[in-house]
Nucleic acid binder design. Structure first.
Lengths: 224, 224
DNA sequence: CCGTATCCAATAAGATACTG
DNA sequence: CAGTATCTTATTGGATACGG
């Protein structure tokens, strides 16, 4: 049984292979399985705990998450580490190489947002929202603006630093930002991308900046 | 039975969905199935026939190819058309929107080529080879060079135009290029990326240029 | 909290043969 | 050439229950 399982797992890696030297084919062997890229997305801004991943990947089951993390680790894309004391909890983080796929993931998301079938009203994880700020950012619309915009999304806090040509995201205390959006990530997404009124969430600080901020992330034009 | 099939196909689209507004999740619903991105890769430089796709996607079976093409068509990524007379054969081509995923596909391939497990000795389709020229191109190494390099790879011919900052690929008659590489795509790949000697294929034209050309596509450094 | 172990159902993929 | 039709296999994913 032990042996059989090993054989099966090897088969899983071998038989389902694309026999193709093309880098893309290899990419799909590395991160092409269901959930794999979404897990990597969740690791974009730093290490995450198992339960956090499970919570933000709506619909994944524990065993699938375990399996994907193990595969990604075996392939050198994810690393299992322990946070320094006093936290000392076990976390997963992307390796340096693994981190390099994040811009591509973001670009894929931007591409797909042009689909006529894209439904932006579905739930959105905090990381998805932060990533959307980076991929949809319009430098032209932000001309001359520099600001720190904070987010309190459930357990996690982020700061988006708007600069001349890009937005940098840090997972860190939002206090001290020029303006802070607070609420669950779905509601905040509604305000940022869906045009929902501020009253649906909490907005503290420079409200003028908040209003301007919302204009910086135009949705790409629909295809077709 | 008819009805059952419809129900099943809807289930395939619905149940396997990621419930996630994130663009990436939608991208994976659009092109995340096995073979889908590889099919799009094959459409990068123009329309292709069913049999050509099947031949270059080593290992795909006819029914899977049929199904993928139908899905991609339904999603607005691929279009089924007929070549103008006198050819008048039926072909598949990427839509304008579908074409925009090509650079992302190329970047994914380049990322994956850094994997310690990447095996560059496997077979490589003509399109893969052409795409690798674009993704691995080093503008620094090509400083001052402008040239047209032709390829005759089995049935298909391509011309790579090396410019200041990029390589453009066209699927067109190779005649008139400054140098022409001919052979099956695996052998030519061996020469271009594997350091195999010219004798394994046919090289006609400016041999000095051919030698220089080989230096323009450094493999990215391995991760880990 | 962080998983592992087991089981079941759905389905996708592959092989093969066949048709307009 | 361009696919369908059919059948078999095995992988995947999801649910549940359990252990450190």
């Amino acid at each position: 049984m032990e042996l059989e399982k090993v054989t099966k797992s090897l088969a899983g890696d071998d038989k389902r292979r694309y026999d193709d030297a093309c880098g893309l084919a290899h990419a799909l062997e590395l991160v092409g399985e269901r959930w794999a890229m979404l897990i990597l997305r969740e690791l974009a801004y730093g290490p995450r705990r198992f339960s956090g991943l499970k919570a933000d990947l709506s619909g994944i089951s524990a065993n699938v998450l375990t399996q994907r993390l193990a595969e990604l680790e075996r392939r050198g894309i994810v690393r299992k580490t322990r946070l320094p004391p006093p936290a000392s909890v076990q976390v997963y983080e992307a390796t340096e190489w693994g981190l390099e796929i994040e811009p591509l993931i973001g670009a894929l998301g931007k591409w797909a947002a042009r689909s006529p079938n894209h439904n932006p009203t579905l739930p959105m994880s905090p990381v998805s929202l932060m990533m959307s700020l980076q991929t949809l950012f319009s430098p032209e619309r932000a001309a001359g603006l520099e600001a720190r915009v904070g987010f309190r999304l459930g357990e996690s806090e982020y700061v988006a630093s708007v600069g001349r040509e890009r937005v940098d995201i840090e997972r860190t205390d939002a206090a001290g930002s020029d303006v802070i959006f607070s609420g669950n990530s779905n509601d905040v997404t509604g305000v940022i991308h869906g045009g929902a009124p501020f009253e649906t969430i909490t907005v503290e600080g420079d409200l003028g900046l908040a209003k301007r901020f919302l204009t910086l992330f135009p949705l790409p034009p629909k295809a077709g």
